[in-house]
Amino acid sequence: MARLGIAGGMIVALAVPYLIRSDFWLGFLITVLLFAAMGMAWNVLGGYAGQFSFGHAAFFGTGAYASAILHIGFGLNPWLGLAAAAVAGGLVGLVIGTLSFRYGLRGSYFALITLAFAEVLRILANTAEFTGGGVGLYVPLKVGVANLQFESKLGYYYVALGFTVLSLGVGWALERSRLGARLMAIRENEDAARALGVDTFMCKLQAIVISGALTGLGGAFYTQYYLYIDPGIAYGPGVSVEILLVPIIGGLGTVFGPLLGSAVLHGAGELARRLVGDAPGLSLIFYGALLVIMVRFLPEGLMGLVWRLSRRRERAANA
């Protein structure tokens, strides 16, 4: 049944661009997919392993800069740049993870240190020469599939779709793997997990590397899509916040939560723009309020609500 649903969803997702034929809505869907994929990346670390990162921009920005610099400076093909960005994001994850987990940082301390790392990288990117400093980097326009640049948004849509399928697939596989079970044990009670012989350091490290690699991939896609990156976009707190909002709204530690969360979050932002007009900060007011409301009334996210409703219907059917 679930498989049928997923197959149906895939067919719809593949056909959607031919059904809506609107550049604006295609752009909207690309944003939804991109943040669904990166939200899943955050979910690997935050949702399954329970380690809340407030600095995923560190991975996003590194991926974005890695692909841009390698392409502009060394002529690396952007498709390979995607892989390079994943490696770079994973490496940053390795460094941050090794340092913070080795010294046993948890909870708010972990959140703060990830934020601090992202800030350090932002300041460095602002001053260093090879990142273009505060001006940022422009990726030269060379339209062609081989260059990962497309004439219409259609191409970007399918790349974003592929990225989302990959990311959700990682989550799906994680849920069924030994690592996933161990991460969830760490989330529920780290000391108990260690007492049962789980190598908590290695497990958390694997989680942050996977998370960093996927987020770095998202950063590279962002650069190719907008053909521009600067320190504020790459390492600013805005990206970190948007990435973490998605799985929290959708449902922590679930495979489809990030997709649902991203759709609702960006849908709400778009609705706000339609209702009140485009003003600076407006969609963010909605994002912030949504976050508070979700934590207050639906701490399990929208997936929790879906489950609750379906369970109620089952019970009604059985009675």
Partner: peptide
Amino acid sequence: VIGRASHGSDQNVLLVTLGASIVIENLALY
């Protein structure tokens, strides 16, 4: 807001105060 929404969990406090700061900051921007 913060006390009620956090349900006594540290991570929820983190998220609620983050949400509050986003709202306050962007209201000022608006």
